[in-house]
Every structure is written in C-alpha cells, then in structure tokens.
C-alpha cells in the first residue's frame, strides 16, 4: 500500500513538473503572439529588466495583465470543475453546464445595470457580484435537485442545471436588451467567454480569489477523496459531510465565478481538465487537483492565443474555441456513461 502510494506520488510529481514546463512554453508563446512580435529571448531579457522601452511597454502594460488573467481563470475553472465532479459524484459536472455561469452572468448584468462603468477600482467588486449570482444559482439547483430519500441525484442535477440556466439566461437577456449598444455588445461577447480584463486592476480583482481558494481546496483534498466515495463512507471516515460539502461547494462557486467575472462565460474547461488530469495521475485529489488547474491554464491560454491570432482582424472570444474542443469531448463522455 505504502509502496503503491509512493509510486503514485512519484508519478504525480513527474507529470506535474512536465505540465509546468508545458504551461511555461504556452505562456511564452502567447506573450509572443500579437500584432507586435516579440521573440522569446527578448521576453526573457525584458523580464530581467534589460529590454528596450517598446517591448517592455507592450509586455507589462498590455500583454502581461491579460495573460495573467487568462492563467488565473484557467486554474480557477479547472479546479472548480474537479471539486464539482467530486461533490456531485457526477463526471459530467461542469460549472457552465450546471448553470453557475448563467447565474454569474446574471450577477454581472445587475452590476453593469446599476454601476454603468467597469473602469478603475470599481472592477474589484465585479467578482463579488458574479459570486452572488453563482451562489444563488447553486442554492436553487441543489434545492431543486435534492430528493428527500435519495439525496442529490446526479442526472437530475444536470437536468435542473439546464433549466435553471435557461431561466437565468432569459432574465439576463431581459436586462441586457435594456442596455445601450456598447454595453450590450460587451455583454454578448462576455456571455460566450471573452477575456476582457486588460488592466492590472482586473488582475488584482481576480488574484486573491484564486490565491486563497485554490490552496484551501488542496488542503481539503483528503475530504474530497472521502466525499467522492459517498456520504456514508465519508462520514464513516470521520468527515462531517454536510459542513464540508457546503464549504467546498462555496469554494467551487467562488473559483469559477471569480474567473468568469474577468474571463467571460467559458464552459467545458471545468469538465475536460479534471478528466484529463484523472487519466494521467489517478483519482486521488491531492494528485490531480493541481494538475487539473494546470491543464485548465494550458487550455485557456492556448484557446485565447488561437482566438487572437488565427481569426484576424476580429478576434474570436476564447470561450468559442474552448467550446469547439469541449463539446465533442462532453458528448463522447455522455455516450460512454451507462
């Protein structure tokens, strides 16, 4: 047993290291892409403080904030999906499919309707609003999918999620049609997953959420392992089921809704990343949770780069690129489930 665990640990360590390298390469590639090409060597030089004025302006004022947001959002979505899949014991769970993003969109629209501007320091409050919307949706979905005798039914969870997200989308549509043209086009781009945060203040708005919640869930990995085995086994192992479930659900909602606040309604990362991670390093949360975040990061940064570079002159939102990869994968998983 001990030997096996050690072997698993080693494997997880190696795979995670490899993926850290891959993500560094992807990020460098993405920093390089844009109207103004900057070679990787020059990027490293600039980071070391030896770049010329032009490339340091482009890097630090324009590309860095955007890429940091993309990275953080990818991590947040990947981890959030992993938590949700464990909590619901449903391999098809994803914050987008469950309707959390529709709730977050509702929160965002409320914010835009009442504050009118998204500039400067006020951007710090956006994640709070999307979190509020997401939490409301999560509450509704859990209440409606709860069966008095059987607990949370996995498939019903998804059906209820579909319905709730249709409902929230209708309300969001109602508000967004009342906005002026400029805000409307912002909202419609946001809804399909456009990484709009471009300033350091947006990074600051997202950073604390990921920095606090991601380590928190990693500490809780043992609890997640127990919970994903079933309520009875978990409570047999000495986990207080209800308390931990609510805490972890809140963490998942916080991670995904804060990410979505800055990166738009991007679905499927929370579905695909944990699956790939589980295939690579096994089902122990302490192993696959960090990897899931890394894979989320890689997928989102790559999608954003593809959307920006291939489809010129009008960049395609990253969410559409992700959906183009994620939908077939979801359907494949759905076809496999009995």
């Amino acid at each position: 047993m001990n030997y096996l665990l050690n072997k698993d640990n080693k494997r997880a360590f190696i795979v995670t290291t490899v993926f850290i390298f891959i993500s560094v390469i992807v990020v460098l590639l993405s920093l390089n892409t844009g109207t103004l090409k900057i070679s990787p060597l020059k990027i490293i030089q600039t980071f070391l403080g030896q770049g010329d004025f032009e490339s340091s302006t482009v890097l630090f004022d324009y590309r860095m904030p955007r890429i940091l947001i993309t990275m953080l959002a990818g991590i947040g979505l990947g981890i959030s999906g992993a938590i949700l899949q464990g909590l619901s014991r449903n391999h098809l769970a994803d914050p987008g499919i469950l309707g959390l993003h529709a709730g977050a969109a509702f929160g965002l629209i409320i914010f835009v309707t009442y504050f009118h501007s998204m500039d400067k320091n006020i951007a710090l409050f956006i994640p709070l609003f999307t979190f509020g919307g997401g939490a409301l949706t999560a509450l509704l979905i859990v209440l409606l999918a709860y069966d008095r005798y059987k607990g949370l039914l996995p498939i019903r969870l998804i059906l209820v999620g579909i319905a709730i997200s249709a409902g929230f989308s209708a309300i969001t549509l109602f508000f967004s049609l009342r906005l002026n043209e400029e805000t409307y086009s912002f909202a419609s781009r946001w809804l399909v997953g456009n990484i709009w945060g471009r300033d350091w203040i947006n990074v600051m708005a997202l950073l604390p959420w990921i920095l606090i919640l991601a380590p928190f869930t990693w500490i809780k990995s043992k609890t997640l392992n127990a919970l994903s085995l079933g309520d009875d086994i978990a409570s047999g192992l000495g986990v207080s089921v209800e308390k931990n479930r609510i805490l972890l659900l809140a963490a998942a909602v916080g991670l995904s809704c804060a990410s979505v606040a800055m990166a738009g309604g991007i679905g499927f990362i929370g579905l695909v990343a944990p699956h790939l991670a589980r295939r690579l390093v096994g089902t122990m949360y302490q192993h696959f949770l960090p990897l899931s975040g890394l894979i989320g990061l890689i997928i989102l940064v790559l999608s954003d780069t593809i959307g920006r570079s291939i489809f010129q002159p009008n960049a395609i939102p990253a969410g559409i690129v992700v959906a183009a990869i994620g939908t077939p994968y979801f359907l494949y998983l759905l076809a496999k489930t009995k």
Binding site: I155, I158, L159, S188, N314, P317, I320, T327
Partner: peptide, 25 residues
Amino acid sequence: IKLTISGAVVAAFLHSLSTGVAIYF
C-alpha cells in the same frame, strides 16, 4: 435524458458558434 442533455449541450455549442460568426463578421 441522454437525448435532452446532449441536445442542450449541442444547443449551447451552436449558439456560441453563431455568436462567433456574428462577432467575426
């Protein structure tokens, strides 16, 4: 249930594709 879920996901995908077309053009 399978028909409904795959339908909903395909619908979401097609919707985001049409939004993509709309944004691009």
